[in-house]
């Protein structure tokens, strides 16, 4: 089954299970976004969703240590992206994590659970499955950014804002 018509661009990258690989991930996403014609803000949002999932895998996926790969693939059009992240670490479904309590006072707040909460907020559709001893995470987003008007009333390209206030 081909998605070539909806998603003319398909790319993949293999990352090591180290946080310094976020730099390579980011350069790769920049390049894909450039090629696909994503709005600048889309690159940041997808970067955030990927970072949060990948940092989770790096931190918890391989308790025995050692060097492992995390595979990230993307299908892209100017208006949408579908991302897949896969690893062979311990079974872990990030969607089962409880959302953080955002009503707590400063003293009682912590960062636990926020990353996955961001992913849920930013992406339209997210899905996890464990098959062939791999964690497979799939997520998609259709971009609904609008151009913000500049002070002189002209539309400024590349300045984006959410259309909905759903987050």
């Amino acid at each position: 089954m081909s998605n070539a018509w909806q998603f003319p661009i398909a790319r993949e990258i293999q990352l090591h299970n180290r946080v310094d690989e976020l730099e390579r991930l980011n350069e790769w996403l920049e390049a894909v976004g450039e090629e696909a014609g994503w709005p600048p803000r889309a690159k940041l949002d997808l970067s955030l969703a990927c970072e949060e999932l990948i940092v989770n895998i790096v931190n918890y996926g391989f308790p025995a240590g050692g060097e492992h790969y995390i595979s990230v693939s993307v299908s892209a059009s100017p208006l949408a992206a579908e991302l897949k992240i896969e690893d062979a670490g311990v079974p872990f479904n990030p969607l089962e994590e409880a959302d953080p309590d955002r009503s707590l006072e400063l003293e009682d707040r912590d960062i636990g659970g926020l990353g996955i909460f961001f992913v849920k907020q930013l992406m339209d559709d997210i899905h996890y499955e464990r098959t062939d001893e791999r964690n497979r995470f799939r997520m998609s987003k259709t971009f609904s950014y609008i151009n913000k008007k500049t002070n002189n009333g002209k539309q400024e390209d590349n300045t984006d804002e959410y259309r909905d206030a759903g987050h």
């Binding site: 940041l44 955030l48 970072e51 949060e52 940092v55 400063l106 912590d110 960062i111």
Partner: peptide, 20 residues
């Protein structure tokens, strides 16, 4: 700053708690 993730927010939270 163009971009922050939860790891970046952790630093802000640590700083705020410490100063509080």
């Amino acid at each position: 700053l163009q971009y922050i993730s939860s790891a970046g927010l952790r630093v802000i939270l640590v700083a705020a708690k410490k100063l509080r």
